[in-house]
Design a protein around this nucleic acid. Structure first.
Length: 477
DNA sequence: TCTGGGGTCCTAGGACCC
DNA sequence: TCTGGGGTCCTAGGACCC
């Protein structure tokens, strides 16, 4: 076995624990990290997770929502994607909004369209505050991060309490914290802390007795475990594995053979052996390997003209993200989808077609030209599409790419992308656009482009932290 | 009338090479 | 007429996450 594997990428053929001797798995031993005599050999994983993040964000600048049931809807006001604690008993996750709207109004449930600009801004504030407490931070999603510490548990727990208070006071978002030897157990602990009123937002796995560990795992259904979705759950239940305790006690080799290396890692993680690597250093930080921009339309779209309009807007959005991570793309793909509810076959995603660009680029002009010339005619002009999207893959770092002489054609020589970035930073997103991405309407209700196919967001709150003209006004009497 | 968006990783299978 | 074995790379599809 290659020892360099141990601290680098997990090899695909075997679940290799990261910090502990691996004799029981591979027959070899790996060096342990050097530790200070006063410090535990293994670091603690701290999972900090905001409570009902989107709903909590809506409350930050609208105190009238406090203690009321609040739900946040997906794009296009489609279905319920977040619920405050008060709303949880009243409304299920993921239900289509149109089916429950009447009931919600009768029960005094307040609904908001999703306001990702606000959530993103509050998320980065929250992450900054937490980073102040623990140097090693891995931002895992918009509302949660893993922190790592080698301090003794007696020191970590008070720090976590202080961090929780700081986020609540400084940003206005309540978070729950789980501390455990592995990421999977930190997730379990965190969920437990949220459900159990005995914990004031912070719970440490290792402060609990073995009997409590068993009780917690016994009460955790297998599909509540990080990494086990609906499909896997069905297969596991068929084998009599119903709870997290059953999975922890299953034979890892059998799990590897019958399922996958991923689930084998989960088994080991439930036993306290870290197997899921720290992703914060992957790819120089936060560089994505693919960029996808897609949206549902507010109404079905037929024919190439409007599809081109939408693709043009999405390409500009994708290119902005591409430039932000200093990359160029070599392959562009587009897809359209029809409603799986309307089609008799349940088919949802129709053509996905790709084309390779002659040279990598970040220019929306070059990409849109390739789409118009090579891909758009693969789309059926008579189908009623409800969504479309653009995927950029084969990303390369701009700094490391030098075109051969005579092959610079795809370079954005006029720096149009840069110009768009500067203009939109100053005047707001969609204030300036290219071609079909050029803007016709201002209406927030019809989304930013003002196009009739643009998504619906009828209950959008203000973007208080990112728009001068939407800043909240406070008055004192 | 109306059912989200943006990612990741793993695996199997095919193409291709020597 | 017989028709290998071992390896890499790429891609599509499936599963998962929030």
């Amino acid at each position: 076995m290659d020892v360099s594997n141990t601290f680098g990428r997990i090899s695909s053929w075997e679940a290799t624990p990261l910090f502990t001797p691996t004799a029981q798995i591979t027959g070899t031993t790996v060096p342990q990290e050097v530790s200070h005599p006063d410090e535990p050999a293994q670091s603690s994983i701290i999972l900090a997770d905001a409570n009902s993040f989107f709903a909590s964000c809506e409350r930050v600048f609208d105190p009238t929502l406090a203690h009321k049931p609040v739900v946040v809807l997906s794009n296009n006001d489609g279905c319920v994607v977040a619920r405050s604690a008060e709303a949880k008993p009243l409304i299920a996750m993921g239900v289509p909004w149109y089916q429950v709207r009447e009931m919600a109004e009768e029960n005094g449930i307040v609904a908001r369209s999703s306001n990702y600009e606000l959530y993103g801004s509050l998320s980065s504030r929250m992450m900054r505050v937490m980073h102040h407490f623990f140097e090693h931070q891995e931002v895992y999603s918009i509302d949660e991060c893993f922190l790592r510490s080698r301090k003794p548990l007696d020191d970590i727990a008070p720090l976590c309490h202080a961090m929780r208070t700081a986020v609540l006071q400084g940003v206005g978002i309540p978070v729950s914290i789980g501390i455990a030897p592995t990421k999977t157990l930190a997730k379990v602990t965190n969920h437990w802390a949220k459900r159990n009123p005995n914990f004031t937002g912070v719970c440490a796995w290792e402060s609990l007795s073995e009997q409590t560990h068993d009780e917690i795992l016994e009460q955790t259904p297998v599909d509540d475990i990080w990494g086990v979705g609906r499909r896997l759950m069905r297969k596991l239940v068929a084998r009599g594995i119903l709870t997290a305790k059953d999975l922890r006690d299953a034979d890892p080799t059998m799990i590897r053979r019958k399922f996958s290396v991923l689930l084998q890692r989960t088994v080991l993680e439930l036993r306290g052996t870290p197997c899921v690597e720290d992703a914060s250093n992957a790819l120089d930080g936060f560089r994505k390997q693919q960029i996808l921009c897609s949206r549902m339309f507010s109404r079905p779209v037929v024919g190439h003209t409007e599809i081109r309009q939408a693709l043009s807007v999405y390409v500009q959005n994708a290119c902005r993200r591409l430039r932000r991570q200093n990359c160029l793309t070599s392959t562009v793909g587009i897809f359209c989808g029809v409603s799986p509810y309307a089609s008799s076959t349940g088919e949802s995603s129709l053509p996905y077609v790709t084309t390779n660009l002659e040279t990598p680029t970040d220019s929306p002009l070059v990409i849109m030209k390739a789409i118009n010339e090579r891909l758009v005619d693969k789309i059926d002009p008579h189908t009623h599409y409800i969504r479309a999207g653009v995927i950029l893959t084969g990303l390369v770092e701009s700094a490391s790419y030098y075109p051969l002489e005579g092959f610079e054609a795809n370079r954005d020589t006029h720096n149009i992308g840069q110009l768009l970035d500067t203009a939109t930073a100053r005047f707001g997103q969609y204030s300036l656009g290219l071609g079909y991405g050029g803007i016709r309407g201002q209406g927030r209700k019809d989304h930013e482009t003002g196009a009739t196919w643009s998504m619906r967001r009828e209950m959008l709150s203000k973007r208080c932290t990112t728009r001068w003209d939407e800043m909240p006004v406070v008055s004192a009497k």
